[in-house]
Design a protein around this nucleic acid. Structure first.
Length: 492
RNA sequence: CGGGAUGUAGCGCAGUUGGUUAGCGCGCCACGUUCGGGACGUGGAGGUCGGGCGUUCGAGUCGCCUCAUCCCGACCA
């Protein structure tokens, strides 16, 4: 039988596409650039949603919902914002179909043209700030701390499952504050929430940093981000938090009355993460046998595969499994007993490995005799036999072990593929291998663009959470003075 | 929108200078033998060959048009 997943060392992008489909996470849809998220993939996304949602609530935010459609005129109120998104907007121009007078099917009714076209939201700043205008009159109305779980549409030229699709699911936080300081604090607070989520739940080491002028969000004053390294050495932006200054408040004329009775524009932030995180999860931890899920996000923690010949053996094994499953469920683990009789155990092993289930239990006649169970862990593929009584405890411990192990593995990979680079020759050589290059940069847009043109590498961020980088030096390209190192990499 | 490629069964593909009833592998269904790392045998179901027009006695195969998908660019907080 053919191998299910291709070799990631040979062709990373083929490995990725194949894995997404074969592990039952998602597939391409009939609609160009759009994705169908399958139940198994969605279950992982749901876990992410619940965990993130809790973090947002714990930091004082509330969920709300704003319209899918944005009047075209709203989008154009903030100059940089519209410039950034104009090229990738889906637009609704009509509101009715009619039977085709010249043949079968339906056609757009020309009579039903909209007075003003509606843009399918590529992001919701404009519709939300148009709404916030009505919510805010006094300093007593502030801050407003809202989050929205929604879908957005960006008509990208080229798409890839989870990483860049025409429609994707995400959350977008939109906050309004009385002062610049408070808004900046919020921006930083939320990027740290994302970093914590990535590290603690996704087992994904990330670097927190600030985007350069050319890489920041259209309409933002500053964009903070978390950047992760995938196993091909490319960078993936996993979340962003924007300090919007008063840009949107001015565009939508949102002012409040201060304690002193003066009128001030409101300060804003927005922050978002998307189903792209699924792509990060796959690319950061997957191996040639398939997905490797961190226990904290796995829809199924433990899968049990019975091995038997006779009905008697089967009954006895299932009884042992059910007893063990009860104990595991009591410890809040989700357990699946794979009792299918149309596939053999080897097939099941391969299939659950492909789906990244952290722990697999096998019980056969031999175990029955010895009072043992076989425990196999997905991250290392190691197997061990333990006494049936000790199994539940061991499995619970394994969850933390696996969670930590894959984080450390990913961190080690990132460290091994991060280079301090001081010369242009070294830069050109290292960038071909992939990885993060820590370099001095003269701070100009010209240098940044030139380097991108020559090497396809961009500045992923100016790191904020480390002091190691804050030494002075000379720009790797221009030789001009630089205050600190930045991260260059090729990216998704 | 430029450059390249591909559309044949659910999936992956073969199909010769145009030739009669379009094949193969996987998967699927039935039965049997198997079952501690992706089993095997036998039988079976499943096709408007992406669509349209044309050339021809005859088109999966040739020509033109069209649609779709993929890869490389352009594009992409």
């Amino acid at each position: 039988m053919a191998k299910e997943v291709t070799n990631k060392e040979e062709n990373y992008s083929q490995w990725y596409n194949n894995l997404v489909v074969k592990a039952d996470l998602a597939e391409n849809s009939a609609v160009r650039g759009c994705m169908v998220i399958k139940p198994y993939g969605y279950a992982i996304w749901e876990k992410m949603q619940h965990l993130m949602d809790k973090m947002f609530k714990d930091t004082g935010h509330q969920n709300a919902y704003f319209p899918l459609f944005i009047p075209k005129s709203f989008l154009s109120k903030e100059a940089e914002h519209v410039e950034g998104f104009a090229k990738e907007c889906a637009v609704v121009t009509h509101h009715r179909l009619m039977l085709n007078p010249n043949g079968p099917g339906v056609v757009v009714d020309p009579e039903a043209k909209l007075e003003e076209e509606l843009v399918v939201r590529p992001t919701s700043e404009t519709i939300i700030w148009n709404t916030y205008k009505n919510w805010i009159t006094s300093y007593r109305d502030l801050p407003i701390l809202c989050n929205q779980w929604a879908n957005v549409v960006r008509w990208e030229m080229r798409t890839r499952l989870f990483l860049r699709t025409a429609e994707f699911l995400w959350q977008e936080g939109h906050t309004a504050h009385a002062t610049r300081e408070e808004a900046m604090e919020e921006t930083e607070k939320m990027v740290q929430v994302y970093a914590k989520f990535a590290r603690d739940y996704m087992a994904l080491p990330v670097i927190v940093g600030k985007k350069t002028e050319s890489e920041k969000f259209a309409g933002a004053v500053d964009t903070l981000c978390i950047e992760a390294m995938m196993q091909d050495g490319k960078a993936l932006q996993a979340g962003t938090s924007h300090f919007l200054g008063q840009n949107f408040a001015k565009a939508f004329d949102v002012k409040y009355t201060t304690k002193e009775g003066t009128q001030e524009y409101v300060w804003a932030t927005s922050w978002g993460t998307s189903t792209r995180l699924m792509g990060a999860l796959i690319m950061a931890h997957g191996d040639n046998n398939g997905l490797v899920l961190p226990p904290k996000l796995a829809p199924i923690h433990v899968v049990m595969v019975p091995i038997f010949k006779t009905d008697e053996e089967h009954a006895a094994i299932i009884a042992v499994m059910e007893a063990l499953a009860e104990k595991l469920k009591a410890a809040s683990l989700s357990v699946k007993i794979d009792d299918r009789d149309n596939v053999r155990s080897g097939f099941k092993y391969a299939e659950w490995e492909l789906k990244g289930v952290p722990v697999r239990i096998s019980i056969g006649p031999r175990d029955l005799q010895n009072g043992t169970v076989e425990i196999a862990r997905r991250d290392t593929l190691a197997k061990e036999f333990v006494n049936a009584d000790a199994a539940a405890g061991r499995i619970v411990d394994l969850m933390d072990e696996i969670q930590n192990n894959i984080y450390n593995k990913a961190l080690k990979f990132r460290e091994e593929n991060t280079y301090v680079v001081d010369t242009w020759d070294d830069f050109k050589e290292k960038i071909e291998k992939g990885g993060f290059l820590l370099c001095h940069w003269d701070g100009t847009r010209e240098t940044e663009e030139k380097i991108k043109e020559l090497t396809k590498a961009t500045i992923r961020c100016i790191p904020m959470d480390t002091d190691v980088m804050k030494e002075e030096g000379k720009c790797v390209y221009s030789g001009k003075p630089s205050k600190q190192r930045v991260i260059f990499a090729r990216s998704y």
